[in-house]
Amino acid sequence: MLTKEQKMKLYTNLVRVRKLDEIMVKGVLSGKVCGHWSSQKGQEAVGVGATTFLRKDDYIFFCHRGHGITTVIPKGISPRAFIAEHFSKNSGACQGMGCLHVADMEYGAPGLSGSLGGDFVLAAGMGIAAKMRAKGQVVVCIQGDGTYGRGTFHEAALMAANWKLPIVWGVENNQYMVFTPTSDIFPKENMADLAFGYGMPGVVVDGQDVVAVFEAFQTAIERARAGEGPSLIECKTYRIEPHTYGMVDKRCAGLRSPEEIEPWVKKDPVNLFQERLLKEGVLTQADVDRIDREAIEEMEEAERFATESPAPDPQILKQVLYWK
């Protein structure tokens, strides 16, 4: 059971991530974001539920959608470092070199693979390290539904299951792989069914319900910390925004219909949780307004910091290749 404080924390993180998403959209429109922005609006409950209560020394891998905001922000990376990285400033998490590839090993966030599916096998390796170190660390690897089609998942899942590595595989199934509905490219309804072949637990959970996500991950994480091996959790969610911000919102060759999106807007994870907490008396409307205001202030301050930071010195390119 979650305490009142824990519920407040989950809610606050949902709001913080939503506000950061909005700041990033503004950053794209004002030309400050180097590259693109793949909004994760409406999918926040997955990452927030999975990572808010991780230990600092746990490892996380995240999918490209949202460039990791729903996981790296709850894990502890500052919005300043996140935004500055996207603005390609030297105060960014990767000194402005990575843009959407946000990484900070202090928070167990080793980065983002440029090729989708590249992270699975890396996660397996971090699982080996965590098991060897025997400090109870876990690796949480959340990837999109499309990415689970990569063979790297099969190889990593076999390795993790065979050696009982402390890994939780999360599927953030937003039902779209760019313009293609996932149902067109995967033979079964539930990707969690893949778990059976490897002999690990596989569960399906409502990805709009941050508490349900949290509970599923918590069970898997405890299992992993106890040395009982990996699990697979599929979170059913939906992509509200186009593939990347500003892109034509297609479904296959045609356009996606607003009727399809509408029911999912009603299942917004922030609103759902807010209603629940108001009803439970955990939050008052005053709390809701305060949390909203504080999150906006935090993100606006971070945006100003990033805007004012200097660009990286090109001299840096002379020392990029090797450690020494």
């Binding site: 076999l158 299951a161 065979n162 033979p187 079964k188 990707m191 069914d193 893949l194 778990a195 059976f196 072949g197 490897y198 002999g199 690990m200």
Partner: peptide, 18 residues
Amino acid sequence: KIIHPKDDFADLGFGYGV
């Protein structure tokens, strides 16, 4: 048996509905 987590490789079929 030391490199594969399950007895039967055939179990892999389930995930694909095969």
